[in-house]
Amino acid sequence: MGTVLGAMGNVRWHELQHAYGSASQVPGVLSRIAWGDAPTSDEALSDLERWIGTPPVFDSTAAAVPFLWELAATDTVRDRAGVLELLATILAAGNPEHPAWTRAAHDAVAAGRSTAALLGSVPSPPGVPSPPGVPEAGGTSPARTLRTAATRLLAAIDRHTCPACAGLPPREARVR
C-alpha cells in the first residue's frame, strides 16, 4: 500500500464493528478512496459514510478517522473535500448507547484540527484554470472547494459540544 495508508495493517479491523457488521472491509474501502478513479472513489466514500459516519458512530469510526485525515492531506486523493465532509459528519454523529465510541470518534476528528487549518489555507494553484464553463472569478475550483470544506470543519471542531464530550478539558488543551 505504500506510505499512504500504510499503517492500516496495524489495526485489528476484524475485531471492530460498523453499521452492518465486521469492519474488516474498511481498509479496502479506504484504499478505494485513495487510489480509485472518480466513480470508484465516490462510491467508496459513500459506503464508508453509511458504515461509520451516519448516526450512530461505531468503534471502527475512531479507528478510521486518522486514515481519513491522511487521505484529506494527500494531494492525489480525488475528493479531499468529501473526506473532510465525512469527518464533519462523524463529529456531528454520536451513539447514546456507547458514549465512549462517540467521544473517541470526536477526539480523533479534533486531533486533526491542524490539518484542517492547513487545508483551509491552501491557495489555488497558479495558472490552473477553473473548470470548463465556470467563470474564473466566480468558479469553484477543487482548491476552493477544499478550503471551504476545511473551514467548515474547523468551525465545527471549535464549537463542538455534545454530552459524550462534556466535562473534557478545553479542546485547545487536548488538540494543539
Rank of each mutant, 00 (worst) to 15 (best):
A105Y: 06
T140C: 11
S41W: 00
L45A: 05
S41P: 03
A62L: 15
A19E: 03
L153H: 03
R159W: 14
P126K: 07
N10M: 10
L45D: 00
E43R: 10
G112W: 04
G133D: 04
G112E: 02
S130R: 11
S22G: 12
D37K: 13
A72F: 01
S24Y: 12
I33E: 00
R78I: 05
A7G: 14
L119F: 06
E15C: 11
P27A: 05
L71I: 00
G53R: 05
D107Y: 07
H98R: 10
G21T: 04
E172D: 13
A92L: 15
A143H: 10
D37N: 06
T148N: 06
V65T: 06
P55V: 15
P123Q: 02
L86N: 00
G2A: 08
P39D: 04
V57C: 07
A164M: 06
A34R: 02
S141D: 06
P27L: 05
R147D: 00
A34F: 02
N10F: 14
R176S: 09
E70V: 00
E43H: 13
A173R: 10
A73V: 04
V175P: 05
A62T: 10
A110D: 08
A104F: 09
S46G: 12
S141A: 10
S124R: 12
L16M: 15
R50G: 15
I90M: 15
D37H: 02
S24E: 08
A149F: 01
T151N: 07
S130I: 08
T115I: 09
A73Q: 04
P123V: 02
E97P: 10
T145A: 11
L45T: 01
T102P: 12
R80T: 01
P66T: 07
W51H: 09
A100W: 11
T89I: 10
S124P: 06
G2T: 02
W101P: 12
E172V: 09
V77M: 01
L16I: 13
V29M: 02
R32P: 02
R147A: 03
E85L: 11
R50K: 15
R103P: 10
P169Y: 07
R147E: 03
T76S: 11
P142Q: 05
W101H: 15
V26E: 02
L48R: 03
P66F: 01
E136H: 14
S31H: 05
T76I: 08
V29P: 04
P132C: 06
W35P: 01
L168F: 07
